[in-house]
Design a protein around this nucleic acid. Structure first.
Length: 278
DNA sequence: TTGTGTTTTATTGCCTCC
DNA sequence: GGAGGCAATAAAACACAA
């Protein structure tokens, strides 16, 4: 344990210089006149050697400057350097050590503040980007739902007006859009279109063909009399099936665009080719 | 002038290293 | 076990608004 007796503390007090700041005071700390306060201070200085005043004295600006310079060179204090500095500045080695100790603590605090500021700046930048992407995401989702609704109404209209034109023909046209979507995704990924169609056909033949829905793009006349509601349900289930086939791309899209899971599912359930470039 | 917040000097207790 | 470092804290010195 390092402990310091009263003699060392007393020596530290004796060795202190009156600071510049002290000299600046127009009036003393007790409200006396300048001259009287100076006299009290000088008496206090003299009395230090006789009794423990218990008062702290700040280092002079010159002492602080010298200590700062030394700290700049090396923030740790070797015993030889400590003694040398103490002799040069008229301080006790213990005072020099304490000053370095406190200075290191202040430096550490400042460093933490700097680190915090840097991290906060990083966070703010990332958050800004995230918010921007989220806004884009919402706008696109809204646009897609509008297009979806539009397709539905268009299909209903064609069902009522033109009997020759089967409802499924409208479905097919929207299906083509959907296929374009998959093509685009596949092309973006570098694989062939036939692959996407293969997956698509497989999924559809497993699940949806039993419902009488033929997904062959070239032979789109085989469906008999499904209502538009059924068509829409089929379209939805087909999209889910297609979503399975493109799960890898879905994950990549999520990674790139910060899509939520729901948004991503919505994305694959609409009949429009993607035009997204994040 | 005074109350209050901040800075600086110093102490204490604990820990690690040799 | 002593020396030295660090965190927490006390207390004096200082700054400043009301």
């Amino acid at each position: 344990m390092k402990r310091f007796g009263s003699s060392e503390s007393l020596g530290a007090l004796v060795s202190n210089f009156p600071s510049k700041e002290e000299g600046k005071l127009a009036k003393g700390k007790y409200g006396y006149s300048k001259e009287f306060q100076a006299m009290l201070d000088s008496l206090e200085q003299e009395d230090i050697g006789e009794e423990m005043s218990g008062k702290k004295r700040r280092l002079s600006s010159e002492q602080v400057k010298a200590l700062e310079r030394s700290f700049e060179v090396e923030n740790k204090l070797e015993p030889e350097r400590k003694v040398k500095l103490a002799e040069e500045l008229g301080l006790q080695p213990r005072q020099v050590a304490i000053w370095f100790q406190n200075r290191r603590a202040r430096w550490k605090t400042k460093q933490l503040e700097r680190d915090y500021s840097a991290l906060k700046a990083d966070y703010d930048g990332l958050k800004h980007n995230y918010d921007s992407l989220e806004r884009q995401n919402k706008a696109l989702a809204e646009k897609l739902s509008q297009l979806k609704a539009k397709l539905c109404t268009e299909g209903a209209e064609s069902n009522g007006s033109a009997k020759e034109e089967s409802p499924i023909s409208t479905c097919k046209s929207s299906e083509n859009i959907e296929v374009d979507l998959f093509k685009n995704l596949k092309t973006k990924d570098g694989s062939s279109d036939s692959d996407s169609n293969e997956v698509l056909m497989k999924e559809e033949s497993n699940g949806n063909s039993s419902l009488g829905y033929n997904n062959n793009n070239n032979n789109n006349n085989s469906i008999s009399s499904n209502s538009m509601v059924n068509w829409f349900q089929l379209s939805e289930s087909r999209s889910v099936a297609a979503g399975k086939g493109f799960q890898g791309q879905l994950v990549r899209m999520e990674e790139q665009s910060l899509f939520t899971t729901d948004d991503s599912c919505n994305f694959f359930s609409v009949d429009q080719a993607p035009s997204l470039h994040w």
